[in-house]
Design a binder for these strands. Structure first.
Lengths: 344, 344
DNA sequence: CTGAAAGCGCTTACAG
DNA sequence: CTGAAAGCGCTTACAG
């Protein structure tokens, strides 16, 4: 059996209280005692039982990452990986472990969150995507359980969040296409229940309106963050009698699907259709043509979110509860000045 | 305060033992009692403290995933994500949570493993990459702690493993290039301390020898699973006075780097260099040209590994402790019959 | 079928 | 500076 604090105490001829204090570097322990106890800990190869520790200290030094119901879709997207990198990077540094919270086979995310939160398995929760009217956020907010959101919450302005200014980002990208001479610009959105989808749509609309360009409902298509969605959006849009010459696309993965579909149909990018998308995943630059994309600093989003959450968990006051990570446009080959041949 | 088992017992007028038995569906509890207790649990919105439960039951219903020291590199690769999808898929179904084990800032992976294992935070450990002489495996093996390896262990044949037959896979892919008329075939390997790198090198060598083709040490290059490595390998190989006409590459990500470099230098794939790689990540098919790749069933590797580990953890006997997931070649545009212009 | 009691391995007032 | 004791929220023989 592995040595416990009791074994150490016995062997060292002190009480378990003393051993516990040595472990936690309590200030009022004599150097000699500490030294002796530490030597025995070494000798017996002692490692504390973290479960027992958590039970009494009410702290787990663990953060939960909520996986969405369709974990598959999220996990397929480099966004997840990149955010994870940022999260792991900070949490490791801060001495926190990470627990993935997968929703039960055919249950809701909220169930899993309740089980973990009430089960005292984590000190705080990271939410990677903000949905409109998210019951998980409502629950955590009501319960007062520490959590941070990558995204934005409309209903709970006091929620700790790290986000891109998606309205501005979409506005900027759209504006870039407008400056290139495009007048018929479409928008391929993500799932409409995500806040990010709404914000980007708003930014897109704002730019179109300001430039007094035509607004056409059929130029706005919704989908998932999957290549298939891009393929479908492309099929629909290119089949329109009056079709756009440029597209703002909400995710690079969707753009890949669009490019692929266009290529299969014999169209060319950007000659037949200019594309500008979001996320700037590493393959965007390597695609053919390279994809123009808004870099939203995904690693930074994850890193900062973790930073904020841990500060909150540890009771340090967080001055700015709604942080914005700056974005930047990377203009590449997939977007180009309007091709005169196509011009309306 | 959240309700505990004690509150339920008090309110229901039974002992805590009885409540505990109701929770765990103990057979010898009267239906009436069970019903009453359950009603109160509902009423008080009771959820068990999982930490307390773990402490006494000595089971956490949690699996640990070991992140390598350079978590960055692993996380950048779609291999990780895809394996995670398989892992999450099975573990969720089986009711297990997942704890990411990140190595301490500048410490070794083994430290983190010991802390988690001895700290009783998980019931078993998943290792995503097998290194030669891996101290982590040595530790877990000696300790008798349940673990499974995606890969192969040379030192501990009794380790639970799920692997590709990498020797055969590399042999098959090399042979495919040979059949296409290539006689000068190079190999771009991953880190040499990984078992997978050695196995694939062996398969490559076997095919070359059998076909009595020239073996040249400078046609074998090592690198990391990064695009930069591909770029560097490409620079080196294309600068050789006598250079290969085809390359077997150990990872799609590396291949992307190679293709990118070749394109920048004005070379064309497959005309100037045929490429065949491993993993068949989803973007391999979409690249230009589409990348020929060995599909090793990464999702399946993760799924099966989790399945085996949980069986082991729960004491069910695992008949085949070293499982092989079949691979298949996907021959696409990046590999083509030797271009006569380049020949000899 | 049910309860009293001991115990899992820790931490932390309290007292000295 | 150190120890005895109580307790964190559960489970599980043991006895009835």
């Amino acid at each position: 059996m592995a040595a416990t604090i009791k074994d150490i105490a016995l062997r060292a001829g002190v009480s378990v209280s003393t051993v516990s204090r040595v472990i936690s570097n309590h200030p009022r322990i004599s150097p000699q005692t500490a030294k002796k106890v530490r030597a025995i800990m070494q000798e017996l190869n002692y490692h504390p039982n973290l479960t027992a520790k958590s039970l009494v200290s009410k702290s787990t030094k663990t953060l939960g990452i909520l996986l969405p119901k369709q974990a598959d879709v999220l996990l397929l997207n480099p966004f997840f990986t990149e955010a994870m990198r940022g999260i792991v990077s900070y949490s490791t540094r801060a001495g926190y472990d990470l627990l993935m919270i997968g929703p039960p086979s055919n249950g809701e995310e909220l169930e899993a969150v309740i089980r973990i939160v009430r089960g005292k398995r984590v000190d705080g929760i990271l939410i990677l995507h903000s949905r409109v009217n998210d019951p998980v956020i409502a629950y955590l907010q009501k319960d007062g359980f520490p959590h941070v959101l990558i995204g934005r919450s409309e209903e709970y302005p006091s929620t700790l969040t790290v986000d891109t200014d998606n309205v501005a980002a979409a506005y900027d990208a759209t504006h870039c296409l407008i400056r290139q001479g495009h007048r018929k610009i479409g928008f391929v959105s993500g799932p409409p229940n995500l806040v990010v989808s709404r914000d980007r749509l708003e930014g897109y609309r704002k730019a179109i309106r300001e430039a007094k360009l035509p607004e056409r409902d059929e130029w706005i298509v919704e989908g998932d963050f999957l290549q298939e969605s891009g393929f479908r959006a492309m099929s629909f849009l290119m089949g329109l009698p009056d079709r756009p010459t440029a597209l703002l696309v909400t995710d690079d993965i969707i753009t890949f699907g669009i490019v692929r579909g266009l290529t299969e149909l014999g169209y060319r990018v950007p000659d037949d259709l200019s594309l500008f998308s979001f996320n700037n995943i590493s393959l965007a630059e390597l695609a053919n043509p390279p994809i123009s994309s808004v870099d939203i600093g995904i690693f930074q989003l994850g890193y900062t979110a973790t930073h904020l959450l841990i500060a909150d968990v540890e009771g340090r006051s967080v001055a700015d509860r709604r942080q914005i990570i700056p974005h930047r446009l990377l203009i590449r080959g997939s977007s180009a000045p309007l091709n005169p041949r196509v011009k309306g």
